[in-house]
Design a protein around this nucleic acid. Structure first.
Lengths: 164, 164
DNA sequence: ATATTGCGGATCTATTTAGTCCGAGATAGG
DNA sequence: CCTATCTCGGACTAAATAGATCCGCAATAT
C-alpha cells in the first residue's frame, strides 16, 4: 500500500497556488523550480489535477495553473484522489464463493464481513482527508508566507520580453 | 495505493483457522484447496504471518498452521500489516526544504502540516482495523459455519497412511 | 527410515511508476 | 492582422518495484 511520491508534490503545489492572488497563475516550470522537481514530470501530475477539476490551466505566454475553486472548497482528499484514483486499496475478489469451501449464492447476498470492515477503514481514511481544506492548511502557516511565496515564484517568471 | 490481493486470502484463511478446535492445524495445501488458490504462493504469505507472530506452524506430517493466540486477541490490522508492513502510504520527503522556496530549518521543527494530516488519516484507518478481532468476525457467521468448515477441510487432509 | 510438512532463498515475469519528449493551441507584441 | 514564443496536452520510453513460482533444506510424526 503506497502512494506515488508525486502526491507530496501536488499537495505542496496546491498549497502554493492557494497563496496567489485570485486569478494569478504559476507555470509548471515555476513550481518545479520552487521545489526543485523535474519540470516535465511535475507538469504531467498537474494535468491530472486539471482533469479532476481541482486546478484550471491557461495556455499561452504568462499562462499557467491556478485553483479551479476557492481554497476553502478544495479538500486534501480531492487532491490525493485526483492522482491516485478513489478506489479502495482492498478489492474483494469474492474468494468465499470459490473452491471447495465455496458458499452458496444465497449466503452471499450481503457483502463479505471482511470486505465491509476494510471498506469502513477506507472510509475513515477518506473522511479524515475530506475534513481538511487548503484554506485550513493556509490558516496554520505564518502570515508572512503568501508574500514570500509570491515573490519567490515571480523570480522565475518569464522575463518581460527583452528588447535586445 | 493498493493492497496485495493476497490480503484477502490471508484474512479469509485466518478466519478459517479461527474456526478449528484449539490446537488443531490446517496445512497450506488444505487452505489452498478450500479457496482455490495457488498453493505455493499462499504458503509464502502464511509464512509471513508466522514471522509476524499471528500464526504458529508445526512442521512434519499432519502439521500445518494454527492461530498463535486466541481469536479475540488477533485484530484485522495485525493480519493486514503482517503482509504489507505498518508504514504509512504517504512518505514525506521534506520537499519544503528543497529548491528556491526552501524553508529555513528553524521553520521545520514541527512536521509538515500536510504530512501530519496524511498521518492522521492513516491512523484513522489503522484504528478501524484494530477495533475488529477475528472473534468479532466469527460472531456474525452462522452458528453452523465452524462444523461445515472443519468437515470440508478434513476432506483434503493427508490420507491416513495407505497400508497398500 | 520415510514421507509429509513448513521454511528460506533464488529466480522470472508483469505491472506500475518515474521520467522525457515533441506537437497543438493560445496570447502578447509588432 | 500576423508572427513569434510561451504554455499546456498527450504520447512514448526506461527503470524499479511487487507479484508469482520454483527448488532444495530442516524438522517431525508415523
Amino acid at each position: 500500500m503506497k502512494l506515488p511520491v508525486s502526491t507530496e508534490w501536488v499537495l505542496h503545489c496546491a498549497t502554493t497556488l492557494a497563496q496567489l492572488e485570485p486569478g494569478a497563475t504559476a507555470s509548471a516550470a515555476q513550481l518545479a523550480a520552487y521545489y526543485d522537481l523535474p519540470a516535465p514530470y511535475l507538469a504531467k501530475q498537474l494535468q491530472a489535477l486539471v482533469k479532476a477539476g481541482v486546478l484550471a490551466a491557461t495556455t499561452g505566454p504568462r499562462g499557467g495553473f491556478r485553483l479551479a475553486r476557492p481554497a476553502a472548497e478544495i479538500t486534501l482528499l480531492q487532491v490525493v484522489e485526483a492522482l491516485d484514483g478513489a478506489s479502495s486499496p482492498y478489492e474483494c475478489q469474492e474468494i468465499r464463493q470459490r473452491g471447495r469451501g465455496a458458499l452458496p449464492p444465497q449466503d452471499c447476498r450481503d457483502t463479505c464481513v471482511l470486505a465491509a470492515k476494510m471498506a469502513d477503514a477506507h472510509e475513515a481514511w477518506r473522511r479524515t482527508l475530506a475534513a481538511e481544506s487548503l484554506a485550513d492548511v493556509l490558516a496554520v502557516l505564518p502570515p508572512t508566507a503568501p508574500a514570500r511565496t509570491r515573490s519567490l515564484l515571480a523570480a522565475t517568471a518569464s522575463p518581460p520580453r527583452r528588447t535586445s
